[in-house]
Design a protein around this nucleic acid. Sequence first.
DNA 1: GCTACGCCCTCTAGCGACTAGAGCTTCAAG
DNA 2: CTTGAAGCTCTAGTCGCTAGAGGGCGTAGC
Lengths: 143, 143
Amino acid sequence: MAVHIEDLAIGDLARRTGVKVPTIRYYESIGLMPEPARSEGGQRRYGAGHLARLRFVRHARDLGFEIDAIRELLAMAADPQGGCGEAHAITRAHLAEVEDKIARLVALRDELRAMLACDNGRVADCRIIEVLADHEKCLHDSH
Amino acid sequence: MAVHIEDLAIGDLARRTGVKVPTIRYYESIGLMPEPARSEGGQRRYGAGHLARLRFVRHARDLGFEIDAIRELLAMAADPQGGCGEAHAITRAHLAEVEDKIARLVALRDELRAMLACDNGRVADCRIIEVLADHEKCLHDSH
DNA sequence: GCTACGCCCTCTAGCGACTAGAGCTTCAAG
DNA sequence: CTTGAAGCTCTAGTCGCTAGAGGGCGTAGC
């Protein structure tokens, strides 16, 4: 909060947050970002509040939160006196999903590695095609 | 190949492969599955070849291969005399993506776990909102 | 043969989260 | 005052399906 930032063009905001220009406009269109002020010629002009909010959004997206979850997180962030139990619930649900995804990807990784253990010869002898053609040859039954 | 399967309705094929009926029609529309024969009344009738091909597709999709990659794998599977180097290349590329995704998800998981280490009190003290609002408080700089 | 019911048909539109392009206007540096 | 980058709106496309409307087909029982 040392420097007072005002009147950023959309491109400046994009550079400062790492969010692409069309994506910023898209966020505005779905109500995730508020409509900014406009220059006399009609161009968007952003301030420190927009910058902070967009960084919050960007970070949450990087963390894999869905837009609707971010909407809820934003609403909570706007109310510092409220409880954060809901934020916990959202985060826990998200964590569970992430852990599940990791487990499935690890199984998949092992399977892909096993598939690569072939001598690169003809298709007739290739484990990759073979495994894909016949599920029984898989390492796991998980899928 | 013990039993000769012919004249499956689309629903039978769906049950035998675990691929939903509209998805089978979708695969046909994008040329991933060939157009099947039709009954007198115009309903699709599938044979053993379709069944095998759809199982191949299903399995590859489960393994996270994209449709275009599956197209290439299918073309290779159809040519058992050809080399399988390309199948290796596709699989290796896919494996690299999967490993990358795992690494990022693990970092994310740790971050989410750290975020949950808050006493569930007011938003003003909540690490979740705080971390999302300020990237600097993250565990990693990876994102 | 007739009816009932489940399955099948085509077609269009929608999802999430953007991304790309056309065709035009505005801004700021030189 | 000109130029060129960056902004504007709008539409349409991406991927891999999924949902729904409004109808036609197939078969089992009577």
